[in-house]
Computed example of a mutant assay.
Amino acid sequence: MTARPVPPTEASMLLGDLTWPDFESRAHSGYTIVPVGALEPHGPHLPLASDTMISEHFAARLAHGLGGVVTPSIAYGIATEPYRLGGTFPGVISVSGTTFTNLVGDVLSSLADHGVRRIIVVNSAIDNTAFLCEAARTFTERVTDARVMIVAWWDVVGEDFRNALAAETGVARRDDHHAAMVESSLVMHIAPDSVRHEKAATSPGAGPPPRRMSYRVYPLPPDVATETGIVYTAEEAGAHLGARVADQVARQLEAAVRLEFNDPRGQ
């Protein structure tokens, strides 16, 4: 999946739009930002590429704020556990942990071969995290003057902010995870035409609500599965809320990058 269209002022930030002399002139300075997502169900109301859309959005905003180049997305990720998805549904197009780790490592190594040394991986699929860390650890052991930051929107949105949203909307934090209020709101803000708004309040299906687990069981117990993929509530989601979350994350993300790269002004 290629990066989604961005405003004209950001067009030159996409690596795929640069010529090789353009990239060569920028590789040794500034940041290179790698959006990472997944292709998987997010209930009946959000598109399969929701994670990738979110990563691309924040990668573009980060590049605009700090100055940097955004690579094409790594849009195939690690399969999310079925208990998070509410069962097994069509649309989980994933790769193995070995393939994913090797792909990320190869991308990092290729960037480094051209002089890139400051890399930010913007991830929006939680099951990718451990494999991203393994790829970055192995890469930085080999390229010792490189620095890689792996960050997801939920890492920087802030506990106080999330708690305030919960109090304001009446949606408890325990009910706001995969494809729920905050994630749905982000996609409604970022790509409103891709959302089936009328299905955001769809129930899990007939019978009692699905049981939620904090551990894994194979095969998935029947009382954990749903008919629709609705595990958590998205009833209070909206583009206006997504805009607030996006602005909060963008500010906090830029601040975190400046801190970790000792960069008070950006490049």
Score class of each variant (00 low, 15 high):
Ile190Ser: 12
Ile93Ser: 10
Ala234His: 02
Pro90Met: 04
Val34Leu: 15
Gln267Trp: 14
His240Ala: 15
Pro221Trp: 03
Leu220His: 11
Arg173Leu: 15
Val182Ser: 13
Glu40Cys: 07
Gln267Gly: 09
Ala200Thr: 09
Asp263Gly: 05
Asp106Tyr: 07
Met53Leu: 15
Ser25Trp: 06
Tyr76Asp: 05
Leu39Ile: 14
Gly242Leu: 11
Ser96Arg: 11
Pro90His: 07
Thr129Met: 13
Thr138Pro: 00
Phe100Gly: 07
Arg244Tyr: 10
Ile230Pro: 02
Pro90Lys: 01
Ala225Glu: 05
Pro210Tyr: 12
Ala27His: 05
Ser96Phe: 08
Tyr83Trp: 11
Arg162Tyr: 12
Leu111Thr: 00
Ala136Lys: 10
Pro208Val: 02
Leu46His: 04
Asn262Trp: 06
Glu81Ser: 14
Phe23Trp: 13
Cys133Gln: 14
Glu10Tyr: 05
Ile74Met: 03
Ala243Phe: 09
His114Ala: 08
Val121Cys: 05
Ala206Ile: 01
Pro204Ser: 01
Thr140Ser: 15
Thr32Leu: 14
Ala250Phe: 03
Gly238Met: 06
Asp145Asn: 10
Thr52Asn: 04
Val6Phe: 00
Thr226Phe: 04
Pro222Met: 07
Gly77Lys: 03
Gly37Gln: 02
Ala146Tyr: 00
Val104Leu: 13
Phe139His: 15
Arg251Ser: 12
Ile93His: 07
Ala63Asn: 01
Pro21Gly: 14
Pro219Asp: 08
Val122Pro: 04
Ala180Gln: 10
Ala79Gly: 15
Leu48Ser: 06
Met53Gln: 14
Ala191Arg: 14
Ala130Ile: 14
Arg196Gln: 09
Ser29Val: 13
Gly238Pro: 06
Ser96Met: 08
Val231Lys: 02
Gly65Ala: 11
Val257Leu: 01
Val171Gln: 03
Arg216Trp: 02
Ala239Lys: 02
His197Glu: 14
Ile54Cys: 06
Ile126Trp: 09
Pro90Val: 04
Ala201Ile: 08
Thr144Met: 06
Ala239Met: 06
Pro41Asp: 12
Ala38Asn: 15
His197Gly: 11
Arg137Met: 10
Pro8Asp: 09
Gly115Lys: 13
Gly229Ser: 04
Pro209Arg: 12
Leu253Tyr: 08
Ala246Phe: 03
Val34Asp: 01
Leu18Thr: 07
Gly105Pro: 00
Ala191Asn: 05
Ser94Val: 00
Tyr31Phe: 15
His42Ile: 10
Ala206Phe: 02
Gly266Ala: 11
Leu132Glu: 09
Gly266Glu: 07
Ala237Ile: 05
Pro210Gln: 14
Arg196Val: 09
Arg4Asn: 10
Ala59Leu: 12
Asn128Arg: 05
Leu108His: 01
Asn128Pro: 01
Pro192His: 03
Ser73Thr: 14
Leu165Asp: 04
Ser73Gly: 15
Asp145Glu: 13
Gly97Glu: 14
Glu183Ser: 08
Ala75Asp: 15
Ala225Tyr: 07
Arg251Ala: 06
Arg84Met: 11
Ala167Cys: 03
Glu134Tyr: 01
Asn163Tyr: 06
Glu260Gly: 12
